[in-house]
Nucleic acid binder design. Structure first.
Length: 473
RNA sequence: GCCCCCUUCGUCUAAUGGUCAGGACGUCAGGUUUUCAACCUGAAAACAGGAGUUCAAUUCUCCUAGGGGGUACCA
């Protein structure tokens, strides 16, 4: 009878939900779904100086946007400090921990000395056996865990394999600060135990912590969860992911116009694979995901691949949904409010009708909206002097000269252009000689390249295309 | 410094004690397309280096180099 899997995602709210955290959350979520278990969420806010309410909201928002749901209410670690303290006292009572009266300066000196001697820098255990009566007055003690000094601590990691640490390299870590607040390694152990976590899936920057935590589990007589330490994600240059690269919050990816499904698909393939499968549905991911297939080396973040994937998902997304997402995205643009006003209901309708032509050439929602700018541009268009001169003379021949200018000068074949103008005249019910004005109104100059076809898309692309083909032949 | 982890095309990765080392993104060249995009076809592109084990190593072992993580009264 196998226990039901319970994973957890445990971010510390000191910033946004970054891309590495998002992948960790995804892996936890996938593993929980795959095994029919649960994923819990724990906010590790014990660093009160760095934790912020805004960061908590950003993380919850990010998870929701990525559609990674968690079970139950989030657990706030800070609220459990009393319980952590209780366990620290228990350890103290059992002689598995002790009070340490060393000052910050003494600790500093200790580290330097150890380093100079080529030993692992760490607490030397001075207060392990020393009589508390010798404690200097006025110093509040911290409580240190009495780590084993001999032998080794072994972690059977589902990703990293068997990792062995010599106990002599692991010092007596502080579990309760002199101000009475618990430290990370204690809180994590107690919370994971109390929350009945069966699988800890996290970044491999926690590998050493896993060893220390294992020691604490043992001292407490608790079973350790199954560990899986996944490699970190690096920037395009191979260095640690920083703000300079892709270490943006997921909300930045949303703002750049990526779809959650695309981001999930991209992220899951970073460090994990299932044969040659590249594009996979969430259901497939859940079905195929497993910890053993996670690689052991760090992966670099590659925007080009994300873009490609996003374009793929964009093309598969229903038009109406794209419009909905665009509407939701608009407020995040610097000129969002103004743009929203300019578009209006009519604009959204036009946009949805033009969608088939628009979405197949955009890689992101932002690009898509950008290329649709002609639909909502202010009229009349801004034209340069030469274009105006040409317009003034009107007539079909002139239009032929004008259009390429509007287009950013693609090379139109005369007969195709003629057909286009003809089509446009028909569609709009104008006489051939009077097409310039309305066409000018339909096009929008400024940004990007509107593309005559996009105008036709509004009218009904398929039909227009067919007519042009007929006429050109 | 010390401890731990990693190393297959530019990038993400697959596979294997004997393979033409596979796929995807990107790149390049064609095709299709009135532009762009998409799409189709094709091409270039990798086992970090050195020992050892073996009839045979990309695959197993060791060393070196390089990269990464940790080394707090941060998480």
């Amino acid at each position: 009878m196998s226990e039901k899997v319970i994973t957890r995602f445990a971010p510390s709210p000191t910033g946004y939900l970054h891309i590495g955290g998002a992948r960790t959350a995804l892996f936890n979520w996938l593993y929980a779904k795959h095994t029919g278990g649960k994923m819990l969420l724990r906010i590790e806010d014990t660093d009160q100086a760095r934790s912020t309410e805004g960061a908590i909201l950003a993380i919850l928002d990010g998870l929701r946007w990525l559609e990674l749901d968690w079970d139950g209410e989030p657990v706030y670690q800070l609220a459990r400090a009393e319980r952590h303290r209780e366990i620290a006292e228990q350890l103290l009572a059992k002689g598995k921990a002790y009070r340490c009266y060393a000052t910050a300066e003494e600790l500093q000196a200790m580290r330097e000395k150890a380093r100079a001697e080529g030993r692992a820098p760490g607490y030397d255990g001075t207060w392990r056996h020393r009589d508390p009566l010798e404690a200097p007055p006025g110093i509040e003690p911290a409580i240190r865990f009495k780590a084993p000094r001999e032998g080794e601590t072994v972690i059977e990691d589902r990703v990293q394999g068997r990792v062995v640490f010599a106990n002599k390299d692991l010092d007596d870590l502080v579990i309760l600060r002199s101000d009475g607040s618990p430290t990370y390694n204690l809180s994590v152990v107690v919370d994971d135990h109390d929350m009945a976590i069966t699988n800890v899936i996290r970044g491999d920057d926690h590998l050493t912590n896993a060893a220390r935590q294992t020691q604490i589990y043992k001292a407490l007589g608790w079973d350790t969860p199954v560990f899986a330490h996944v490699p970190l994600i690096h920037g395009p240059d191979g260095a640690k992911l920083s703000k300079r690269h892709g270490a943006l919050g997921v909300e930045a990816y949303r703002a750049m116009g990526y779809l959650p499904a695309a981001l999930r698909n991209y992220l899951v393939r970073l460090g994990w694979s299932h044969g040659d499968a590249e594009v996979m549905s969430t259901d497939e991911m859940v079905q195929w995901f497993d910890l053993e297939a996670i690689g052991r080396s760090a992966a670099r973040f590659d925007f080009a691949k994300l873009e490609n994937l996003n374009g793929h998902y964009l093309r598969e997304t229903p038009d109406a949904e794209i419009v909905t997402r665009l509407k939701a995205l608009l407020p995040e643009f610097p000129n969002g409010a103004a743009l929203a006003e300019r578009i209006g209901d009519e604009g959204w309708r036009k946009l949805e009708r033009a969608m088939p032509g628009l979405k197949e050439r955009a890689k992101t929602l932002v690009e898509l909206l950008d290329s649709a700018a002609y639909l909502f541009a202010a009229r009349p268009l801004e034209l340069d002097e030469q274009a105006k001169k040409l317009l003034d003379t009107t007539g079909r021949g002139t239009l032929t000269a004008l259009l390429p200018r509007l287009e950013g000068a693609p090379s139109w074949k005369p007969e195709a252009l003629d057909a286009l103008v003809r089509t446009f005249a028909e569609e709009t019910g104008r006489k051939l000689g009077k097409v310039a004005q309305p066409l000018r109104a339909a096009l929008t100059g400024k940004s990007t390249s509107p593309g005559i076809f996009d105008v036709l898309d509004v009218l009904g692309r398929e039909e227009s295309l067919a007519r042009i083909r007929d006429q050109v032949q």
